[in-house]
């Protein structure tokens, strides 16, 4: 396989416009361009969708309302009424990941969420916000979160470090899950795509497989956006209610 056909090539971040920000590399890359595209697409999808403000919504308006109600209901079910003020944040997070995942399925596109830098930053942002919310709501009482109720004292020496560790592992599992799913899926598609070309007439077999896998990948794009968002909701719930 030639270097140009590497299945990893699709993940390359290429600068489109070289920019320097106080000596730092702030170039607009293909990644940044797709982020901008996602923001524009989400905003247009929602604002143009409800433009007519119909009493009986059309298809487009229904989709916009469905996205809204999906996240609103998720937040209400996991966090309750206090979750309402985090709605714009959770909604932005879900739509950003979902649209970046789906844009990654377009041919010749770039999958923003296949980079650990991006998923890691998003997960770390969630972690920082959730911890800040917990500290602001409960003060030092927040530390009781690491001390489960009903555990005998000797066991606490074992349980508390585990709880603390698992708390700090959150952003890692949160980000790696999304990054690994996206990277693995796209790599697999590329590898099978290579087989189609290499196998000539028999390439029809991997081709059929790739069609099925593309469907699967689209499902995973939605599912991983959902998983990332519902975990965020659960973390917010922990921060607001301090319960396991």
């Amino acid at each position: 396989m030639a270097a140009g056909d590497s299945p990893m090539l699709q993940f390359e971040v290429k600068p489109l416009v070289e920019l320097k920000l106080g000596g730092l590399d702030a170039s607009l890359t293909n990644s940044g361009a797709w982020m901008i595209a996602a923001v524009i697409a989400i905003t247009l999808f929602l604002t143009l969708g409800v433009r007519s403000r119909s009493m009986v919504p059309g298809r487009w308006q229904s989709m916009a309302e469905m996205a809204y109600e999906f996240i609103a209901d998720m937040l209400k079910e996991t966090v309750g009424a206090q979750g309402r003020k985090y709605f714009p944040f959770v909604f932005s997070l879900f739509m950003f990941i979902l649209v970046c995942n789906l844009f990654g399925m377009l041919p010749y596109s770039f999958t923003v969420t296949s980079h650990i830098a991006v998923t890691g930053a998003l997960a770390l942002m969630v972690f920082v916000i959730v911890t800040a919310v917990a500290l602001a709501t409960h003060g030092l009482h927040f530390l009781s979160f690491f001390v489960p109720k009903g555990v005998p004292l000797p066991m606490l020496f074992l349980v508390v470090p585990i709880e603390v560790l698992s708390y700090f592992m959150r952003p890692i599992s949160h980000s790696v899950r999304l990054f690994a799913n996206m990277t693995a899926g796209h790599t697999m598609l590329k590898v099978f795509g290579g087989f189609v070309v290499q196998m000539g007439v028999f390439g029809v077999l991997p081709f059929i497989l790739i069609v099925a896998l593309t469907g699967l990948e689209i499902a995973i794009a939605g599912l991983q956006a959902y998983v990332f968002t519902i975990l965020t909701c659960l973390y917010i719930n922990d921060a607001v209610h301090l319960e396991h």
Binding site: V13, P15, L19, L21, L24, D25, A26, S27, L28, T29, S31, G32, M35, I36, A38, V39, I42, T43, S92, M95, F96, V112, H115, A117, V118, A121, L122, M125
Partner: peptide
């Protein structure tokens, strides 16, 4: 490649 990604992620996510 991290820095340009993070800068643009910050900009786009805040704008979004």
């Amino acid at each position: 490649s991290f820095l340009p990604q993070l800068i643009w992620l910050g900009i786009t996510f805040v704008v979004l």
